[in-house]
Computed example of a mutant assay.
Amino acid sequence: MSFASRTATRDRLHIFTTNYDRIIEIGAELAGLRLIDRFIGTISPIFRSSRLEVDYHYNPPGIRGEPRYLEGVARFTKLHGSLDWIESDKTIRRIGVPFGASSLEPFINEFDGESSYETLMIYPNSVKDRETAEYPYVELFRDLAAATCRPNSTLVTYGYSFGDEHINRVIEDMLTVPSTHVVIIAFGDPLNRIETFIRETGRGAQITLLLGDHLGDLKSLVDNYLPKPAIDKTTIRMAEMLKQRGVIRAESSEQGNPGE
């Protein structure tokens, strides 16, 4: 929510993941964050190649014809597929699988009675670099390039080891735009892939590296370093009132001059 909440004049947060589990989906659901992806439908959503800018808007009370962006919305792309994507009749569909299900077999069989694990749209193997050039992965990587390779864009990587060359190429192309920036957050770099990537790109001024088990720990990162979500208007209002009354300024001056 710290990244997703922003003013309506800024682009939506776009989340990309190489994992085919659904931990981000369940986390967004628990946080009340709406995700927009390429799937259309409710009962059996189907993957669409159309890049229409579908979004969520609302009409403010008393104001007609001026829809505004709904808060708490993010775009979402799973670059290597998902456990609940299957191929059926030359289309990609998302099937209803409970989070934490012990087996996918009953849900795959109930879809059309003939599907098997081979129809699952995930590619965690050594030839994924070549297979991501095929449908539907080519569409997903176009989204990655379109979201990152443009002026003033910022990419934050968390836990990514820079071991996928097809993703590294997109990031390298992004860094050729001088106003872009990459923030790398990771526990460590045991294989020196991150160091090698930074050195080979030659764009060190556009890269911020946050390395270590303290910054790499998600709870520590959220509790101590990420800002509070902008949606929390009550806290923002309270801070403004305290600042107007001089409370915040007085406390900061006391902390900065402990001897006085």
Rank of each mutant, 00 (worst) to 15 (best):
T201F: 09
Y158H: 06
N224A: 02
Y160Q: 09
G113A: 10
E53R: 14
I43M: 11
E200S: 08
A101W: 00
G100K: 06
F76M: 14
R12G: 06
D232G: 06
I86K: 01
L221W: 00
H214L: 10
F47A: 03
G163N: 02
H57S: 15
P258N: 09
E118H: 03
G256D: 15
R34V: 10
V177P: 03
E66S: 05
Y117I: 07
E165H: 13
H214D: 15
S50I: 09
T9Y: 10
G96N: 15
Y135A: 04
E110W: 00
V127I: 10
G163R: 05
V138L: 14
C149N: 12
E110Y: 01
D232Q: 02
E118W: 00
T201S: 14
L226P: 00
N152K: 15
R10L: 14
T154G: 11
F76L: 03
D143F: 12
V222W: 02
R237E: 15
A28R: 03
L209E: 04
P136T: 08
Q244I: 05
S253W: 01
E195D: 13
V138I: 13
T77S: 10
G27S: 10
G81H: 03
L210A: 13
I40S: 10
T42W: 09
E114M: 01
T7M: 12
R203F: 09
E29F: 11
A230R: 15
L155R: 12
V127S: 12
P258W: 01
F16A: 08
Y58D: 03
M1N: 08
G32K: 06
L30N: 03
P124W: 00
T7S: 12
G204R: 14
R199P: 05
S153G: 11
D84V: 02
D37H: 08
G256C: 05
Y20T: 04
E254T: 07
D89F: 04
L104R: 01
I86F: 01
S126I: 10
V156L: 14
V73C: 14
L79Q: 05
E240K: 13
R150D: 08
A145M: 13
L215E: 04
D112H: 01
F39R: 05
T235R: 12
L52P: 11
C149Y: 11
I95M: 04
G41I: 05
Y160G: 02
I95D: 03
S82I: 02
P45V: 09
Q206E: 06
G96Q: 14
I248D: 11
P45N: 14
P61R: 09
F162N: 06
I86N: 00
F3Y: 08
